[in-house]
Amino acid sequence: MKLKKIVFVFAVILFVSEHARAIQKNKNTNDKDTLKVMSFNIRHCTNKDGKLNMQRTAEAITHAGPNIVLLQEVDNKTGRSEGKDQAAELGKLTGMEHVFGKAINFNGGEYGVAVLSKFPIVKSKNILLPYKQGTEQRTALWVALKVGKDTLTVVTTHLESGREAIDFETRLLQVKDIKEQILAHPHPVILGGDLNSHPDFPGFLFLKSFMKPSDKEPYTPTYPGIDPWVKIDYILMYKPERFTVLDYEVVDNELVSDHRPIISTLLLKEVK
Protein backbone atom coordinates (compact mmCIF):
# COMPACT_ATOMS: atom_id res chain seq x y z
CA MET A 1 0.00 0.00 0.00
CA LYS A 2 2.83 2.36 0.91
CA LEU A 3 4.50 1.67 -2.46
CA LYS A 4 1.25 2.50 -4.29
CA LYS A 5 1.04 5.84 -2.47
CA ILE A 6 4.62 6.67 -3.41
CA VAL A 7 3.95 5.82 -7.07
CA PHE A 8 0.75 7.90 -7.01
CA VAL A 9 2.51 10.93 -5.49
CA PHE A 10 5.32 10.65 -8.03
CA ALA A 11 2.79 10.49 -10.88
CA VAL A 12 1.01 13.60 -9.57
CA ILE A 13 4.31 15.51 -9.28
CA LEU A 14 5.27 14.50 -12.83
CA PHE A 15 1.87 15.55 -14.19
CA VAL A 16 1.99 18.92 -12.43
CA SER A 17 5.54 19.65 -13.62
CA GLU A 18 4.69 18.74 -17.22
CA HIS A 19 1.50 20.82 -17.04
CA ALA A 20 3.47 23.79 -15.69
CA ARG A 21 6.02 23.39 -18.47
CA ALA A 22 3.25 23.33 -21.08
CA ILE A 23 1.69 26.47 -19.59
CA GLN A 24 5.04 28.26 -19.64
CA LYS A 25 5.64 27.22 -23.25
CA ASN A 26 2.20 28.48 -24.25
CA LYS A 27 2.82 31.71 -22.34
CA ASN A 28 6.07 32.18 -24.24
CA THR A 29 4.35 31.44 -27.55
CA ASN A 30 1.64 34.01 -26.90
CA ASP A 31 4.24 36.77 -26.51
CA LYS A 32 3.97 38.99 -29.58
CA ASP A 33 7.69 38.64 -30.33
CA THR A 34 7.91 34.91 -29.62
CA LEU A 35 8.06 32.60 -32.62
CA LYS A 36 7.08 28.97 -32.46
CA VAL A 37 8.41 27.73 -35.77
CA MET A 38 7.57 24.28 -37.13
CA SER A 39 9.25 22.61 -40.08
CA PHE A 40 7.31 19.64 -41.40
CA ASN A 41 7.61 17.44 -44.48
CA ILE A 42 3.94 16.45 -44.71
CA ARG A 43 4.28 13.87 -47.53
CA HIS A 44 1.41 15.54 -49.43
CA CYS A 45 -0.90 14.77 -46.47
CA THR A 46 -0.71 11.04 -47.15
CA ASN A 47 -0.43 9.49 -43.71
CA LYS A 48 1.51 6.35 -42.79
CA ASP A 49 -1.59 4.25 -43.44
CA GLY A 50 -1.30 5.31 -47.09
CA LYS A 51 -4.50 7.35 -47.00
CA LEU A 52 -4.92 11.02 -47.90
CA ASN A 53 -5.97 12.84 -44.73
CA MET A 54 -5.53 16.62 -44.61
CA GLN A 55 -7.61 16.81 -41.43
CA ARG A 56 -5.12 14.63 -39.54
CA THR A 57 -2.20 16.68 -40.82
CA ALA A 58 -3.94 19.89 -39.75
CA GLU A 59 -4.70 18.43 -36.33
CA ALA A 60 -1.03 17.49 -35.86
CA ILE A 61 -0.04 21.08 -36.64
CA THR A 62 -2.74 22.63 -34.43
CA HIS A 63 -1.95 20.34 -31.50
CA ALA A 64 1.71 21.43 -31.56
CA GLY A 65 0.64 25.10 -31.48
CA PRO A 66 3.11 26.80 -33.87
CA ASN A 67 2.57 30.33 -35.18
CA ILE A 68 4.81 29.79 -38.23
CA VAL A 69 4.85 26.54 -40.22
CA LEU A 70 7.38 25.69 -42.96
CA LEU A 71 6.01 22.85 -45.07
CA GLN A 72 7.55 20.55 -47.66
CA GLU A 73 6.03 18.02 -50.09
CA VAL A 74 2.86 20.01 -50.60
CA ASP A 75 0.42 19.30 -53.45
CA ASN A 76 -1.60 21.92 -55.29
CA LYS A 77 -4.55 20.51 -57.23
CA THR A 78 -2.90 17.20 -58.14
CA GLY A 79 -4.81 14.06 -59.01
CA ARG A 80 -3.41 12.10 -56.08
CA SER A 81 -4.64 14.82 -53.69
CA GLU A 82 -8.15 14.95 -55.18
CA GLY A 83 -7.53 18.33 -56.80
CA LYS A 84 -7.18 20.12 -53.47
CA ASP A 85 -5.06 23.21 -52.85
CA GLN A 86 -3.37 21.74 -49.79
CA ALA A 87 -1.74 24.98 -48.59
CA ALA A 88 -5.09 26.78 -48.70
CA GLU A 89 -6.94 23.89 -47.05
CA LEU A 90 -4.36 23.56 -44.26
CA GLY A 91 -4.44 27.32 -43.78
CA LYS A 92 -8.20 27.21 -43.37
CA LEU A 93 -8.11 24.23 -40.99
CA THR A 94 -5.38 25.76 -38.80
CA GLY A 95 -6.57 29.37 -38.94
CA MET A 96 -3.41 30.69 -40.58
CA GLU A 97 -2.48 32.69 -43.65
CA HIS A 98 -0.82 30.62 -46.39
CA VAL A 99 1.51 30.85 -49.38
CA PHE A 100 2.42 28.04 -51.80
CA GLY A 101 5.68 27.79 -53.77
CA LYS A 102 5.74 25.57 -56.85
CA ALA A 103 8.77 23.40 -57.60
CA ILE A 104 7.41 21.24 -60.44
CA ASN A 105 4.29 20.35 -62.39
CA PHE A 106 2.99 17.01 -61.15
CA ASN A 107 0.01 14.71 -61.71
CA GLY A 108 -2.21 17.36 -63.28
CA GLY A 109 -1.28 20.02 -60.73
CA GLU A 110 1.75 21.36 -58.88
CA TYR A 111 4.12 20.12 -56.18
CA GLY A 112 6.31 22.18 -53.90
CA VAL A 113 6.52 23.86 -50.50
CA ALA A 114 4.37 26.20 -48.42
CA VAL A 115 4.30 28.54 -45.43
CA LEU A 116 1.49 28.95 -42.91
CA SER A 117 1.56 31.91 -40.54
CA LYS A 118 -0.44 33.52 -37.77
CA PHE A 119 1.59 36.67 -38.38
CA PRO A 120 0.55 38.89 -41.31
CA ILE A 121 2.21 37.94 -44.59
CA VAL A 122 3.72 41.06 -46.16
CA LYS A 123 5.06 39.55 -49.37
CA SER A 124 6.47 36.32 -50.80
CA LYS A 125 8.82 35.20 -53.54
CA ASN A 126 9.36 31.70 -54.89
CA ILE A 127 12.95 31.19 -56.11
CA LEU A 128 13.77 28.08 -58.14
CA LEU A 129 17.08 26.49 -57.12
CA PRO A 130 19.81 25.27 -59.49
CA TYR A 131 19.97 21.57 -60.28
CA LYS A 132 21.95 19.18 -62.43
CA GLN A 133 20.55 17.08 -65.24
CA GLY A 134 19.17 13.86 -63.82
CA THR A 135 18.03 15.48 -60.57
CA GLU A 136 14.77 17.20 -59.66
CA GLN A 137 13.89 20.90 -59.77
CA ARG A 138 13.67 22.27 -56.22
CA THR A 139 12.62 25.64 -54.85
CA ALA A 140 12.97 27.98 -51.87
CA LEU A 141 9.91 29.97 -50.83
CA TRP A 142 10.73 33.32 -49.18
CA VAL A 143 7.99 34.90 -47.07
CA ALA A 144 8.22 38.24 -45.26
CA LEU A 145 6.15 38.44 -42.06
CA LYS A 146 5.18 41.37 -39.86
CA VAL A 147 6.15 40.46 -36.30
CA GLY A 148 5.42 43.36 -33.97
CA LYS A 149 7.45 46.28 -35.28
CA ASP A 150 9.86 43.96 -37.09
CA THR A 151 9.95 42.32 -40.49
CA LEU A 152 11.02 38.69 -40.34
CA THR A 153 11.76 36.55 -43.38
CA VAL A 154 11.17 32.81 -43.29
CA VAL A 155 12.32 30.40 -45.97
CA THR A 156 11.13 26.86 -46.56
CA THR A 157 12.94 24.49 -48.88
CA HIS A 158 13.29 20.82 -49.81
CA LEU A 159 16.73 20.04 -51.18
CA GLU A 160 17.86 17.31 -53.57
CA SER A 161 17.65 13.81 -52.15
CA GLY A 162 19.89 10.81 -52.71
CA ARG A 163 23.46 9.83 -51.89
CA GLU A 164 25.07 9.61 -55.32
CA ALA A 165 27.82 12.05 -56.28
CA ILE A 166 25.43 14.07 -58.45
CA ASP A 167 23.06 14.48 -55.49
CA PHE A 168 25.81 15.83 -53.23
CA GLU A 169 26.91 18.21 -56.00
CA THR A 170 23.34 19.42 -56.57
CA ARG A 171 22.68 20.02 -52.87
CA LEU A 172 25.86 22.06 -52.63
CA LEU A 173 24.79 24.14 -55.63
CA GLN A 174 21.43 24.72 -53.98
CA VAL A 175 22.77 25.81 -50.57
CA LYS A 176 25.28 28.13 -52.25
CA ASP A 177 22.41 29.77 -54.12
CA ILE A 178 20.46 30.12 -50.87
CA LYS A 179 23.50 31.70 -49.22
CA GLU A 180 23.74 34.38 -51.92
CA GLN A 181 20.10 35.26 -51.38
CA ILE A 182 20.39 35.33 -47.58
CA LEU A 183 23.56 37.42 -47.39
CA ALA A 184 21.88 40.10 -49.50
CA HIS A 185 18.93 40.19 -47.12
CA PRO A 186 18.47 43.09 -44.69
CA HIS A 187 16.21 41.30 -42.19
CA PRO A 188 16.76 38.36 -39.84
CA VAL A 189 16.01 35.08 -41.60
CA ILE A 190 14.77 31.69 -40.43
CA LEU A 191 15.43 28.82 -42.84
CA GLY A 192 13.67 25.53 -42.31
CA GLY A 193 13.11 22.42 -44.28
CA ASP A 194 13.93 18.92 -45.35
CA LEU A 195 17.55 19.42 -46.36
CA ASN A 196 18.14 15.73 -47.19
CA SER A 197 21.51 16.20 -45.55
CA HIS A 198 22.92 14.34 -42.56
CA PRO A 199 24.64 16.57 -39.98
CA ASP A 200 28.05 15.59 -41.38
CA PHE A 201 27.11 16.05 -45.07
CA PRO A 202 28.56 19.01 -47.02
CA GLY A 203 25.17 20.66 -47.64
CA PHE A 204 24.32 21.14 -43.98
CA LEU A 205 27.92 21.97 -43.00
CA PHE A 206 27.93 24.73 -45.63
CA LEU A 207 24.72 26.26 -44.25
CA LYS A 208 26.09 25.93 -40.72
CA SER A 209 29.12 28.03 -41.74
CA PHE A 210 26.98 31.19 -41.93
CA MET A 211 23.78 30.25 -40.09
CA LYS A 212 23.13 28.91 -36.61
CA PRO A 213 21.05 25.76 -36.04
CA SER A 214 18.31 26.20 -33.46
CA ASP A 215 19.21 22.87 -31.83
CA LYS A 216 22.50 21.51 -30.54
CA GLU A 217 24.55 18.37 -30.98
CA PRO A 218 23.96 15.52 -30.56
CA TYR A 219 21.15 16.05 -33.02
CA THR A 220 17.86 14.19 -32.51
CA PRO A 221 16.83 12.05 -35.53
CA THR A 222 13.82 13.18 -37.57
CA TYR A 223 13.56 10.48 -40.27
CA PRO A 224 11.81 8.16 -40.83
CA GLY A 225 8.67 8.90 -38.84
CA ILE A 226 8.69 5.47 -37.21
CA ASP A 227 11.91 4.66 -35.34
CA PRO A 228 13.86 7.62 -36.77
CA TRP A 229 17.61 7.11 -37.05
CA VAL A 230 18.91 10.18 -38.91
CA LYS A 231 18.40 13.94 -38.83
CA ILE A 232 17.64 15.59 -42.18
CA ASP A 233 15.13 18.26 -41.08
CA TYR A 234 16.46 21.56 -39.71
CA ILE A 235 15.64 25.09 -38.56
CA LEU A 236 18.49 27.59 -38.84
CA MET A 237 18.86 31.30 -38.08
CA TYR A 238 20.63 34.06 -40.01
CA LYS A 239 21.65 36.99 -37.80
CA PRO A 240 21.41 34.70 -34.75
CA GLU A 241 22.14 37.60 -32.40
CA ARG A 242 18.55 38.71 -33.09
CA PHE A 243 17.16 35.49 -31.61
CA THR A 244 17.08 33.72 -28.26
CA VAL A 245 16.34 29.99 -28.47
CA LEU A 246 13.79 29.14 -25.78
CA ASP A 247 13.03 25.56 -26.74
CA TYR A 248 13.51 22.89 -29.41
CA GLU A 249 11.71 19.61 -29.89
CA VAL A 250 11.20 16.77 -32.33
CA VAL A 251 7.50 15.97 -32.22
CA ASP A 252 6.62 12.32 -31.66
CA ASN A 253 3.92 12.01 -34.31
CA GLU A 254 4.89 8.97 -36.32
CA LEU A 255 1.58 8.24 -38.06
CA VAL A 256 1.05 11.54 -39.91
CA SER A 257 4.08 11.50 -42.23
CA ASP A 258 7.34 9.71 -42.98
CA HIS A 259 9.13 12.65 -41.25
CA ARG A 260 8.74 13.91 -37.70
CA PRO A 261 7.95 17.61 -37.41
CA ILE A 262 10.45 19.79 -35.56
CA ILE A 263 9.67 22.94 -33.55
CA SER A 264 11.92 25.78 -32.42
CA THR A 265 10.58 28.38 -30.01
CA LEU A 266 12.51 31.61 -30.51
CA LEU A 267 12.37 35.09 -29.06
CA LEU A 268 12.88 37.80 -31.68
CA LYS A 269 14.88 40.54 -30.01
CA GLU A 270 14.20 44.19 -30.74
CA VAL A 271 16.91 46.26 -32.41
CA LYS A 272 18.39 48.67 -29.85
Rank of each mutant, 00 (worst) to 15 (best):
M1N: 04
K4E: 12
K4N: 12
K5I: 12
V7H: 08
V7S: 02
F8E: 08
F8C: 06
V9G: 10
V9N: 06
F10H: 08
F10K: 02
F10L: 12
A11C: 08
A11H: 06
V12T: 11
E18C: 01
R21Q: 06
R21H: 03
A22C: 08
I23R: 05
K25T: 13
N28A: 08
N28K: 09
T29R: 02
N30V: 09
M38Q: 06
M38K: 02
F40Q: 07
I42G: 03
I42S: 01
I42L: 11
R43C: 06
R43D: 13
T46Y: 15
K48G: 03
K48A: 09
D49G: 08
G50R: 07
K51I: 14
L52V: 09
A58M: 08
A60I: 03
I61R: 04
I61V: 08
I61Q: 10
I68P: 06
I68Q: 02
L71T: 04
E73G: 13
V74A: 15
D75G: 01
K77R: 12
T78R: 13
G79N: 15
G79C: 07
G83V: 09
G83E: 13
E89H: 06
G91D: 09
K92S: 01
T94N: 11
G95P: 08
M96R: 05
M96W: 00
E97M: 11
F100T: 12
G101S: 14
A103N: 05
A114Y: 14
V115Y: 10
S117T: 00
P120D: 14
P120V: 05
I121G: 00
S124M: 01
N126A: 06
P130N: 04
K132P: 04
G134Q: 13
T139P: 06
T139D: 10
W142Y: 15
V143C: 04
V147R: 01
K149T: 12
T151V: 05
V154T: 10
V155N: 01
V155W: 00
T156V: 00
L159M: 14
L159C: 05
L159I: 12
E160V: 01
I166K: 01
D167Q: 07
F168P: 08
E169L: 13
R171N: 01
R171T: 02
R171Y: 13
L172H: 10
L173H: 04
V175M: 04
V175N: 10
K176G: 09
E180W: 14
A184V: 03
P186M: 03
H187D: 10
H187Q: 12
H187R: 05
G192V: 02
D194A: 15
S197A: 13
P202G: 03
F204H: 03
F204Q: 05
F206V: 03
L207E: 11
F210T: 09
P213N: 07
P213E: 01
K216A: 10
E217F: 15
Y219N: 11
T220I: 15
T220H: 09
T222E: 00
T222W: 02
D227V: 12
P228H: 04
W229F: 11
I232K: 09
D233R: 09
D233W: 06
Y234L: 11
K239F: 12
P240I: 10
F243H: 07
T244F: 15
V245Y: 14
E249L: 07
P261D: 02
L268R: 10
K269V: 09
K269W: 11
E270A: 13
K272V: 14
K272Q: 14
K272D: 14
